[in-house]
Nucleic acid binder design. Structure first.
Ligand code: FES
Ligand code: FES
Lengths: 173, 173
DNA sequence: TATTTACAGGACCGAATCAGTCCGATATGA
DNA sequence: TCATATCGGACTGATTCGGTCCTGTAAATA
């Protein structure tokens, strides 16, 4: 999380963007201090050690997507819209980067040119689903839990029960 | 695969780049016609309906990464370096886009600023591993197999036996 | 040997995306 | 009324992406 800013490695795949990176750190911070009613951008920026405009931008999008609730005016700020157990990493990533789709046809059906002899569609959908599941099985509660197992097999993760069985994260946008 | 070129959607996460897109289609084509000894760029470009320079570029990288073997000179071309069952999607993606790492610390350890109180490291590694597994469980043989199940649960995929238990795809670079 | 075919490697450029900043408007509390 | 803070969006420089092209080298054929 929050990569160093001097070196640029950048030749790896599926890396999430910096704002997403920031956003998840910020959410973890908010989840870790539930006693504070509203966090304003300046305070969060101080805690996370990031410039205020950036934090502000991230907070705004998170609020717009319904992951945070905002309170305007003096003494205003942000607070979590749901319980940490009900906020999945899939929700966070979706809010900050858009829907998960490794292939075009995974976001909107059939943009593929050779739709007819595209024998590749099935396998990609499967892989896409696995990724979705992986992100949906980890919640903000896990992120802020120091006892979260650092060594766990993929099968074990996917075998866990989903957190909220009913409606896993549709938000009022 | 091979998205239409007119509309640009592009606000989704984990989408693979076009060259990777092309590359996998090309590999599928090569795997589907094993009787031909060597495929040259022009022929492949015709089959896949893509400009020759692009196909050439993709083929070159695939050869350099060891997924294809190349034969220079007249009557030259490319052919698969391994059996389709031994070539995983993880190999393809790694060759065309680099290593899978959603977070910086998944590619090189500890570039995270707040390494001390980074409670987020563990969960991210887990998610990263699940993605790797998903890609490693699907092979070129699956891609060209019309009977590949289009509906299959993530658990079933990860439950499958890895194709080659010994040395899952290190290549002579 | 001369010629043709086809890969190897890399330079190159325009387009699109990303990261970060800033501004005017609005809402709330004192 | 004033200070504070979010809201929405515009804006810019840096980077990456997608695609083309050029020079060199290896192999086959006549
Ligand atoms: S050290 Fe890897 S996410 Fe912080
Ligand atoms: S239709 Fe989705 S990959 Fe071809």
């Amino acid at each position: 999380m929050i990569r160093a800013s001097i070196p640029e490695v950048s030749d790896s795949v599926f890396r999430l963007s910096k704002i997403t990176d920031y956003g998840i750190v910020i959410l973890a911070h908010l989840g870790r201090e539930p006693e504070i009613v509203t966090h304003n951008a300046r305070e969060v920026a101080g805690q996370v050690d990031l410039p205020v405009p950036v934090v502000s931008k991230v907070l705004k999008t998170l609020a717009r997507k319904g992951l945070l609730e905002s309170q305007r005016g003096a003494k205003g700020g942000y607070l979590l819209a749901r319980r940490p157990e009900d906020l999945t990493v899939a929700d966070m990533v979706a809010a900050l980067e858009g829907p998960l789709a490794i292939t075009e046809c995974n976001v909107a059906p059939q943009l593929c040119q050779h739709e007819g002899h595209c024998a590749v569609k099935g396998p990609w959908k499967v892989i896409n689903d696995v990724m979705k599941e992986a992100l949906a099985r980890v919640t903000l509660a896990d992120l802020i839990d120091p006892s979260f197992p650092s060594e766990i097999t993929p099968l074990q993760i996917l075998g866990r029960l989903p957190r909220s069985e009913t409606g896993p994260g549709v938000h009022h946008d």
